[in-house]
Computed example of a mutant assay.
Amino acid sequence: MHDIRANPLGAAEIARFLEAFGEALVNTRSTTWRGLDEAARQSDPADLLAAHPTVMKRPVIEAPDGTLYLGWGEAVKARLL
C-alpha cells in the first residue's frame, strides 16, 4: 500500500502508470480536479499528477506478475480474486 497523500509518487512511477493507463489515470470526477483552473487541467498529465497527486484515479494495483490494474471495478475483482 502506498499513500500518495503522505508520500507522493516519483516521476518514474507516474510515467510507468501513465504508460499503462494513459489519461485514464487522471480522475476528472475528483474534488481536486474540480478545484483546478483551466490552465492546470490542460497541463501535461505527468506534471499535473506530480503537482496534485490526489487527482490520480485510485487504486492502482500491481499483481504479482507485474500487471497493473486501475480501479476496483468488477472486471478487476474478477481477475484478482
Rank of each mutant, 00 (worst) to 15 (best):
I14C: 08
I14A: 08
N7T: 13
A6R: 14
R29C: 00
N7Q: 14
L80A: 12
T28D: 05
L81R: 12
K77V: 11
D47V: 07
E23Q: 13
T28N: 05
E19A: 15
M1S: 13
T67Y: 02
D37W: 00
E19Q: 15
M1H: 12
A39G: 11
G71A: 03
P8V: 09
R58A: 04
N7L: 09
M56W: 10
W72N: 13
A40M: 04
D65M: 02
E23P: 00
T28V: 12
G10I: 03
A24T: 12
L36N: 06
A39T: 10
P59L: 03
F21W: 00
A46E: 10
A46R: 12
A11L: 09
K77T: 10
L80W: 07
F17C: 11
Y69N: 05
K57N: 05
R16Y: 06
G71H: 05
V60E: 06
F21Q: 09
P64I: 01
V55K: 01
P64D: 14
A51S: 15
A20H: 04
I4E: 04
P53R: 07
G73F: 08
T67P: 05
E13I: 01
A15T: 12
E13M: 11
T67G: 05
Y69P: 04
P8T: 13
A24R: 15
E19N: 13
P45R: 09
A15F: 01
P8N: 07
R29A: 08
A63H: 08
T28P: 00
K77I: 13
A12N: 10
A15Q: 11
R29Y: 06
A39N: 12
V55I: 11
R16W: 04
L48P: 00
A78D: 15
E62L: 06
A24H: 10
A78I: 03
G35S: 12
A15D: 13
D3M: 06
V76Y: 00
R34Q: 14
W33D: 01
A63L: 08
T28W: 10
W72A: 15
I4C: 02
E74L: 11
A63S: 14
H2T: 11
A78C: 07
T54E: 10
G10N: 13
F21R: 07
R29W: 00
